[in-house]
Design a protein around this nucleic acid. Structure first.
Lengths: 230, 230
DNA sequence: AACCGCTTGTGAACGCCTGAACAAAGTCGC
DNA sequence: GCGACTTTGTTCAGGCGTTCACAAGCGGTT
């Protein structure tokens, strides 16, 4: 079967597919049976043509003249994004942010299950967070091996993030979500995604200043009834 | 002074500038006086040439043959990203994530100060979080007017995020950081940045599956000593 | 004072992603 | 059963961002 299409899906598209999936889940709960690309794009905040292009990476998913089957497309997206099977995640660094993530219901409902919470602080170890007991970080390797966790989430201070990352990778974790404000270096074959909260705010501050600083040039553009999203 | 600001800075560059700034702050604390673009790029996890191009948007910042002055570049970046002045932020939705953000020291240290925490839940209102008392969301308009807050952070459930957003915009907030899993629609002149935590995990899950599912095609790329970050 | 090495700044090519226009295809109404 | 309308899937051009490569400029040295 030479037609095993190893079609390459751009990472930006993958991120949007996840958004579409969430919108579709909501529509399915609402009892809708079909959606058009226009409506779905509007709900997801993207361009309709772009949405169709994104979906085309998965092959034909819709019916021309009708739209997309809500349940059908949801299942196809679920499958494309890693299936229904729940994925075991390890969370290192149970500070305020870590605790919030451990409790976050949005993870569990999408198949991501925390199987271990780790911290170095003896005052934190032993506490119950989100139904799990915080364990000392020394148990990291054993925990990963035992639970076959494939995803590691790092919410430690910046200065220990790299060493935690190294231990996770050595233990077999190949996907890492990093909240610590450092660039992690990992061997090839390991994926890292970084979320930097203060950078987000700083970008907003920059845009804010840019708006205030260049009004003689940009201000003439009045808020017309253009209702543009984004 | 006709030399205002004709140069337009790409948003991706702005986000990286914020990262450089953090690295520089660390180097300054360490007592370093100069850095090269290569070292800075390595610490930030980007390409050296790209870093130089990013900095070139601010005009010449370095000295050829020597590098960049740590303190000088830090001050210039601080200025470009909105100055030293602290910015007032309002946080709506004091759940677990909201509480974690209200306490997050990374915000305060970068000049972002929460001046109001709002929630609808009577059980939450009145609680003390991060040195502030949670107030009922009915006080939103008054609070924004009184504190001149320019940044709003939304950590509410998805179904009320749009209405909270509308009220923030109507009250004068022009920059919004959205953690709720919905696409907010705002009038022109308002900037929104979205952080979607479960999308991040789902992208990792996809990459994970792709690795396992298509090794016959992609595996030949062996882990060379390329030490590539990212 | 002149040379040499090092580092910045910039110009150009490459690739990726986005946004719009067009053809294929299927359904609904008559 | 046929025609017209609707909506998808695809193709094309445009813009943006990234990367490579080279010239310009500065400091240190002889």
């Amino acid at each position: 079967m030479p037609e095993s299409r190893p079609r390459i899906v751009p990472e930006a598209t993958v991120a949007r597919l996840a958004v579409y999936l969430r919108v579709l889940a909501g529509l399915a709960d609402g009892g809708r049976s079909h959606v058009s690309s226009g409506e779905l794009a509007s709900a997801a905040g993207v361009n309709p043509a772009g949405l169709r292009k994104d979906l085309s990476y998965l092959g034909p998913c819709g019916v021309r003249g009708v739209g997309y089957s809500v349940a059908g497309l949801r299942d196809r997206l679920t499958d494309a994004l890693g299936g229904e099977r729940s994925r075991a995640c390890v969370l290192v660094g149970i500070g305020r942010l870590g605790s919030a993530l451990a409790d976050y219901s949005g993870f569990a409902s999408r198949g991501f299950q925390f199987v271990g919470l780790l911290d170095t602080d003896p005052a934190t170890v032993g506490h119950q967070v989100g139904g799990l007991t915080v364990r000392p970080v020394a148990e990291l390797e054993g925990l990963v091996a035992e639970t076959q966790a494939t995803i590691g989430v790092i919410t430690t201070p910046a200065d220990v993030a790299q060493s935690v990352c190294d231990r996770l990778v050595a233990a077999g974790v190949r996907s890492i979500l990093n909240f610590a404000p450092v660039a992690l270096s990992v061997p090839a074959g390991v994926d890292v995604r970084k979320v930097d909260l203060s950078v987000e705010l700083q970008v907003l501050a920059f845009l804010d200043q840019q708006r205030d600083g260049v009004p003689p040039v940009l201000a003439p553009v009045r808020a017309t009834a253009q209702g543009g999203v984004r």
